[in-house]
Write a protein that binds this DNA or RNA. Structure first.
Length: 466
DNA sequence: CGACGGGACGC
DNA sequence: CGACGGGACGC
């Protein structure tokens, strides 16, 4: 993984890729041929299928003799697919030997022969609206080629769609055309073969624990890191409510909350500092309760929230750490939450004598969560005056029984909360609407029904996208 | 005022 | 049967 040279070329400038083997995916072919084949032979035979970025006839390092293998890199996956399917088994040049044409494996993973062969190339993983049926998806994707099957993944209990599924085509080429041309709403990618999940999905998981922040994931790089919802999501596990089974520790933590006073700091820190490092830094001052990198703040900085269990500790931490170079050359900026003035105003603290560090209203102790598959009894819509980490929100809303899910919309300070019990939802509204969480105001109300997804009946349109 | 995410297959 | 180079930021 250290060998990835392509990372720095994220953006929009034009096109020469020398080494970006797997971009787009499966656009490079591995060809087993004859030692006498030349680059020109391959160019002549393969350029009919599309733009070729690179042809490489592999030679022995020492003897310079051809090894009888070659790589041909196309710009487009579908061109590579067409070439692979048509040239495999053909002869080119004046040679007798037939070519064996395969999709090249990723540079760092060696041979491909033990794979399920076609399995990897004919199946797309897609996000599927919950209202869609297998037939809908089949009809939609049949425009790109012959669909062999569609699978919508469903809950095993109630058969409700999970919101994603698979489309299997009869040929690599069809899958490639669909991959390139289907609506972006499907977020199509080539499906991993059934056994090996989570190979590349780690980038969404936990944010930097002991790794520095990685820059860009590969294709389709929609912003993955600039909102509290997604960056917070990975830290779920480090927080008070470690999981559904850990209610007791959450309970104990929550019991302590109401006695503490405000002590929330807003910290701007280089994005090469990860959460663990930041924690250790602020933990120098006793009383650290909470430390969370929340969002990107600039091209090279993140914004974090740091909470102490008493205001003196927070003031002291600000005093000692504000302006510190950490690491060398990168100053940390520490502000009292919500205040823009550089100087600490202690009267600010006094005004909040009765408020706890996390929320300015008393909260009940933490309650068991509902399963993520649970039936939603009530959905709430929440609006924040600033972003908050997902972990804090989850914590707050888990003070009522049967919380299913909390999320904020990308790049917005509003979102949804789902409960399996109406009564919990109503209590959450009653207690939290108008409250402040770490100095951030929150509104909580019943959510409107979602506007019909794509049933196409013209009606209330408040948004133009669907 | 402020409105719709992510997701990996019954192992 | 078979699996990984050369080139190079830019005024």
């Amino acid at each position: 993984m250290s060998d990835y040279r392509s990372q720095s070329r994220g953006g929009g400038r034009g096109g020469q890729d020398y080494s970006n083997d797997d971009d787009p995916p499966m656009s490079r072919l591995f060809i087993i041929c004859n030692k006498a084949h030349t680059e020109d032979d391959f160019r002549e035979a393969f350029s009919a299928y599309g733009d070729i970025e690179d042809i490489w006839v592999v030679k022995d390092k020492h003897t310079q003799e051809n090894k009888g293998i070659a790589y041909v890199k196309f710009s487009k996956t579908s061109d590579a697919a067409k070439a692979q399917e048509e040239m495999n088994g053909k002869t080119i040049g004046k040679m007798d030997r037939t070519l064996k044409v395969l999709v090249a494996a990723n540079r760092n993973q060696g041979s491909n022969k033990s794979e399920n062969e076609q399995e990897k190339y004919v199946r797309l993983f897609i996000v599927i609206p919950k209202t869609a049926t297998e037939d809908d998806i089949r009809d939609e994707f049949a425009q790109w080629g012959e669909v062999e099957s569609v699978t919508i993944v469903r809950e095993k209990n109630n058969g409700n769609p999970k919101g994603f599924g698979y489309v299997r085509f009869t040929k690599f080429y069809y899958a490639a055309v669909a991959f390139e041309n289907c609506s972006p709403k499907y977020k199509a990618v080539f499906a991993e073969p059934k056994g090996s999940t989570r190979s590349q999905r780690d980038q969404y998981g936990r944010p930097a624990e002991d790794n520095p922040v990685y820059s860009n994931p590969g294709r389709g790089g929609s912003s993955y890191n600039n909102n509290g919802a997604s960056s917070g999501a990975g830290s779920f596990n480090n927080d008070w409510n470690t999981s559904t089974n850990n209610d007791m520790s959450a309970f104990l933590r929550m019991q302590n909350v109401p006695v503490a006073q405000p002590s929330c700091l807003e910290v701007t820190v280089s994005n090469c500092v990860n959460q663990d490092q930041l924690w250790r830094l602020f933990d120098i001052i006793p009383g650290l309760d909470y430390c969370q990198i929340m969002r990107e703040h600039g091209p090279r900085t993140n914004e974090a929230m740091v909470v102490y269990d008493n205001p003196e500790a927070a003031i002291y931490a600000k005093d000692k750490l504000h302006g510190l170079e950490y690491p060398m050359g990168e100053r940390i900026i520490v502000k009292v939450n919500g205040m823009s003035s550089a100087r600490m105003d202690t009267s600010f603290i006094d005004k909040r004598t009765k408020k706890d560090a996390i929320c300015n209203v008393p909260l009940p102790p933490a309650q068991p969560l509902a399963s993520p598959d649970a039936q939603v009894a009530q959905r709430l819509f929440i609006v924040l005056s600033a972003n908050l980490p997902h972990s804090i929100l989850k914590n707050i809303f888990s003070c009522w029984k049967g919380l299913i899910d909390v999320y904020l919309l990308p790049n917005k300070n509003c979102g949804y909360v789902k409960y399996a019990e109406c009564e919990s939802a109503q209590r959450a509204i009653h207690v939290l609407n108008g409250a402040e969480i770490c100095g951030t105001k929150i509104k909580v109300m019943e959510a409107e029904e979602r506007s019909g997804s794509d049933d196409g009946d013209g009606g209330r349109k408040r948004l133009r996208r669907n």
